[in-house]
Design a protein around this nucleic acid. Sequence first.
DNA 1: GTCTATAATCCGATAGAC
DNA 2: GTCTATCGGATTATAGAC
Lengths: 224, 224
Amino acid sequence: MTSCGGVFTVFTMSDQREKILSCACELYLNDGLDGFSMRKLARSVGVTAPALYRHYESKEHVLIDVVREAYREFTGFLYRALEGRTPEERLAKAGDGYIEFGLRHPRWYRIVFTAADRLGLDELPADVEAQGCAIHQFWVDRLRECMDAGLLRRGDPAAIGMTIWAHSHGLITLYHNGHFQTDEEGFCSLCDASWQRLLEGVATDEYIGDLKRRDFASVTAGST
Amino acid sequence: MTSCGGVFTVFTMSDQREKILSCACELYLNDGLDGFSMRKLARSVGVTAPALYRHYESKEHVLIDVVREAYREFTGFLYRALEGRTPEERLAKAGDGYIEFGLRHPRWYRIVFTAADRLGLDELPADVEAQGCAIHQFWVDRLRECMDAGLLRRGDPAAIGMTIWAHSHGLITLYHNGHFQTDEEGFCSLCDASWQRLLEGVATDEYIGDLKRRDFASVTAGST
DNA sequence: GTCTATAATCCGATAGAC
DNA sequence: GTCTATCGGATTATAGAC
């Protein structure tokens, strides 16, 4: 919460700016994006609204700092997975961390995966964008080492990552929107079962064989 | 747009109410949920705001009718799949329709899959909820017949449906939020490739065998 | 059925006193 | 660095004339 690391500089906030940011995070987590206003923020800080503008240029700049905190929280959940001792364990922990983050902090989850322009932001600062790239690289690392270990089929880690990401993201957002009639515990076992299906595939071996034969036939036909 | 079917009654709107609803849909599709206000709506209809309240009790009631139109549009895309002549074709068409709906009508998609309370609605009327159930049943039908035809592994169609749904929903929402660096055409082929991975599974056969052996071992150990 | 006028609330942001 | 006062705008919704 205190510092914002760049390549060559580390900037430290004033105490008051830090207090405002802390209240802003709390306000966002309680009231969501719609309920987030400078007036409410001022009230929770214990000052009047204009005072905030001594520390932040605009509401947008406050929100940017909140987004940065969201990323920080997210990576905290993810990077714990590096403590795993095998590729399999690290991938499992990463997946668990992702789901757990989505469950424990729905509003952090939302703000991390919502496009900047839909947050009313022109663009995210470079250091936050960089966090996004780091997360992407983290997943590529997890998948590649599982391929090397013979756990996952070979292929482009980024492409396979999209499939796994879409699956997890879909599960969490559908759960958040109340589309699964179950509590958190039920949702977790639902996730496990669904992950198992993604590992094994949902089609029968016969059908897969069928598809491959058809694909082969169409390729040979097309090459004449 | 004209009628709202219930079990025993069909209610027909007045012309003016119908015109308001039509403008409301257009307004929502253009400006989204945040940009949707009674004043703007009145402007686009060509009257002043208070006039709307002769036809609709509140903004919430207008929005409910908009949501009903969204469902109608969605089912239109889905149910075309019934024209397919085999279970495989019907499932493929249903999946294509789902993705196409998400691509062509992002705002309709959003409103259909957003929880009612996050739209500012207390609850959806019974006939809209019923549409949701019908859609669920539609998917169960598609999956069950593919199991019977030996294309998909046997299992609970509703559970497998969740996996497939989460995957598709994740792809669409991540695309909408700009997380895939690709245009619509690239996204479609990305979807095809990802669906293929979901059919085949992402794990190697060796790893699947491994997991089954471990699972068996833990079950036998647990039963002693 | 539509209008004008208005109530009651919220918002982001600024000017200028202290 | 914080305050009061205020600008200029948005919103839902209603009262009462026509």
